[in-house]
Simulated scan of single mutants.
Amino acid sequence: MKRIILLLLVITGLYIVFNQGFQMDWSQGETKNTQVAVTDDTDLIEINVSSVSTTIIPEDRDDLKAVYNGKEKLTVNDSGDTVEVWIKHKWFDWFNWSPFSKKRELKIYIPENYDRNMSIDLGSGNLHFSGTSKNKPLKLNELTIDIGSGNLNLTNLVVKDFVQDVSSGNVNIDLLKTETGSFDISSGNLEIKHYTGPIEADVSSGRLSIQVDQLLDAITIDVSSGDVSLDLPDDADFTIDGDVSSGNISSSFPLTSKDQSKHSIEGKHGSGKFPIKLDVSSGNIRIH
């Protein structure tokens, strides 16, 4: 008798959880819309999102507007010099899944003339951020990006100071110009096309591929366990200094004053103006 009662309680509990989750999914079609002014006092736009598909859209406006179609709480807050956007997840959100769940989408509209600082924290999910065009990129003073296990696409950006930390995710960047560029990859993949600026990269376990349009500054890359592909313009002027513990550094450029052994490579291409420092513990670096 006790077993029957216990079984009925379990079945009833499962029914309540599933049925409530199903009902809540139907209600998630309600679109949340929040906006705040972006003024001359706004020094930072801070975005913290996870488990949603996010698009940041610059356009002709003087405020920040966020539109979200999910059931989680969307918050847009102005704290004086900072505008914050975040989505708060509840611990029981996983109960609310159903086959009829809609894709969670967040769109953030920002002023196209905003040129100060931005911070993006992407736990998981997808985020796309693009300037208007190649000829009209979005210009920022500082852009800091922290990725847990998400996918990020950046396009048409000019950033004075660019800092990126990838724990486990995938990043694709197409057209980025910087005055300082820092890339930290724990376990993920980063592919950059049409890059201009200095490079300071630390790859623990992952893959880094960078295609440089113009070599205008120094490059420093430290690889613990991973693979790096560095595509430089044919007329790049650089001096390479590379050390390898267990791995390989190769260059398809004809080098003068070349000195290469199993564990090191040194040489100069063109005037040798910009230093390229490479340190590989266990991995491969290919320069071409």
Rank of each mutant, 00 (worst) to 15 (best):
S224C: 02
T239N: 14
I210K: 09
D227V: 13
Q260R: 13
G206K: 07
D259E: 12
K268W: 02
R207G: 09
Q214W: 00
G242Q: 02
G242P: 07
K262A: 12
P254T: 14
V223L: 08
S205G: 07
D234T: 12
D259L: 03
T239S: 15
L208T: 07
D259Q: 09
L216A: 04
R207N: 15
Q211K: 12
D235L: 03
S225R: 10
S205D: 09
D235C: 01
Q260C: 01
D227M: 09
S224L: 02
G206C: 07
I249D: 02
Q214P: 00
I219N: 03
T239H: 05
V223H: 06
S264N: 12
S257V: 01
S251L: 01
D259T: 04
F253A: 08
D227C: 01
V212G: 05
D231S: 10
D259V: 05
L208R: 05
N248W: 02
S264A: 13
S257F: 13
D234V: 06
H263E: 12
V244Y: 13
G226C: 09
L232A: 06
S264I: 03
A236E: 10
K268G: 00
L216M: 08
H263G: 08
L216S: 08
S205W: 10
F253Y: 14
G206S: 04
D217G: 14
L232K: 10
D237K: 06
I249K: 03
D243L: 04
D217T: 04
S229I: 10
F238H: 06
S252L: 02
I210H: 08
L216Y: 01
V244D: 07
D227N: 14
G206D: 03
P233N: 03
L230N: 04
G267D: 11
S251F: 02
N248L: 11
L232M: 09
S251H: 03
P254F: 09
D222I: 05
F238Q: 03
K268M: 11
S245K: 11
R207Y: 13
G242K: 02
T256I: 14
D231I: 14
E266P: 00
S229F: 06
G267E: 07
I249T: 07
A236Y: 05
G242H: 04
S252W: 01
S224K: 10
D243Q: 12
Q260L: 02
I210E: 08
D235G: 02
S209H: 09
Q260S: 14
